[in-house]
C-alpha cells in the first residue's frame, strides 16, 4: 500500500506525545517498529530549546515523520500551522486536524474539506483526520486527499471502533484508497479488528504512551497489526446466526 507514492516499512503509525520520558518514547518507537511517527509544533523559548532536543532525538530514530495540526479549530489556523510544519520538518506530509467540538475533539468536516483543498493546491500531501462520514470522505478525495484517516472513537478515549458499520462502509466504498484508523484505539485487539476490516494502517498514541510499560505495549500493537493484516489476507469466514457442527456428523456412533 502506497501513501502518496511512499511504501511504509510498517502499518503501525505511532504518536510521540504523553510518554513518561524521551527514553521510553524511543524504546516504544523501536518496539513498535513504527512506519511513521507523528509530531507537532509548539512555542519555543530561546533559553530552553526543548524542541531542538526533541527534534534531534526523532531524527536519530530514522522513522518518517507526519506533522499534525493538532489544536487547530479554524481553516486559517490549520493552514498556517501546516506551512510552519512543512518548513520545520522538511516534509509536505501533513496530518490535518481541524477540531469542531471540544468535548469529543470531533473533526469539523466542513472546515477540514476547505483546508484540505487549500493545502493540496499548495503542494501538501494531506492525511485528513475525519469522522467516518461517507459523503465527507468523498469530498476530501475531491479536494485532493489520497489517504483518509477516520476516527475509531474520540482521541484518547481508548474505546476502540465505535461504528463498525461506518468503517466497513468506508472500506467498501473506497477499496483503493489507503485508509487509516486514527484515534480511539485502546487495545491491540482494537487494532487487529481495524486491520481485519481491511484498513491499511492504524495510528496509535495514548494506548501505548499511557500503558504501564509503553515499550511492551508497542510490541503488542506491532503483533496485533500484523495478525489482523494476515487474517484479512487469509479471507475470514462468514459470520452465522446458528451453530454449525465443526465435527462431521456422518459416521457418528449410535449409543442409545
Amino acid at each position: 500500500m502506497l501513501f502518496y507514492g511512499t511504501e511504509l516499512s510498517s502499518r503501525l503509525m505511532l504518536g510521540t506525545a504523553q510518554y513518561p520520558s524521551p527514553e521510553i518514547l524511543a524504546d516504544a518507537v523501536r518496539a513498535a517498529q513504527a512506519g511513521v511517527v507523528t509530531v507537532s509544533l509548539r512555542r519555543e523559548s530561546a533559553g530552553l530549546r526543548a524542541g531542538q532536543a526533541f527534534w534531534s532525538m526523532i531524527r536519530d530514530l530514522g522513522v518518517p515523520v507526519l506533522p499534525n495540526t493538532a489544536g487547530c479549530h479554524t481553516v486559517k489556523d490549520a493552514v498556517t500551522t501546516a506551512h510552519m510544519a512543512r518548513e520545520v520538518f522538511e516534509t509536505d506530509w501533513i496530518k490535518l486536524e481541524v477540531i469542531g467540538e471540544s468535548d469529543t475533539l470531533q473533526p469539523d468536516m466542513f472546515a477540514l474539506v476547505e483546508a484540505a483543498r487549500i493545502l493540496t493546491e499548495d503542494g501538501f500531501k494531506v492525511f485528513p483526520y475525519m469522522t467516518e462520514d461517507l459523503v465527507g470522505a468523498e469530498r476530501l478525495l475531491q479536494a485532493g486527499c489520497e489517504v483518509l484517516m477516520p476516527w475509531g472513537a474520540p482521541i484518547g478515549s481508548g474505546k476502540g471502533l465505535n461504528n463498525l458499520f461506518g468503517l466497513r462502509a468506508l472500506r467498501a466504498h473506497f477499496p483503493d484508497v489507503p485508509l487509516v484508523v486514527d484515534a480511539g484505539i485502546g487495545l491491540p485487539s482494537h487494532a487487529a479488528q481495524a486491520m481485519e476490516l481491511g484498513y491499511d494502517a492504524v495510528l496509535i498514541n495514548t494506548a501505548v504512551a499511557r500503558a504501564g510499560d509503553p515499550a511492551a505495549m508497542a510490541g503488542a500493537f506491532r503483533l496485533a497489526v500484523e495478525a489482523g493484516r494476515i487474517a484479512r489476507q487469509a479471507d475470514p469466514m462468514e459470520e452465522r446466526d446458528m451453530a454449525v457442527p465443526s465435527t462431521p456428523v456422518l459416521g457418528r456412533a449410535v449409543l442409545a
Binding site: Y19, V39, G51, I58
Partner: peptide
C-alpha cells in the same frame, strides 16, 4: 500569517506585532 525563513530578513516588524515562534514538539 506564516513568514518563511527566507523572508525573515526583509520582514519589518511594527509596534505591537504578534509573533509566534514554534519548534518541533511531541504530537499524536
Amino acid at each position: 500569517d506564516f513568514v518563511p525563513a527566507s523572508r525573515r530578513g526583509g520582514h519589518m516588524l511594527a509596534e505591537g506585532a504578534r509573533i509566534e515562534i514554534l519548534a518541533p514538539m511531541q504530537g499524536g
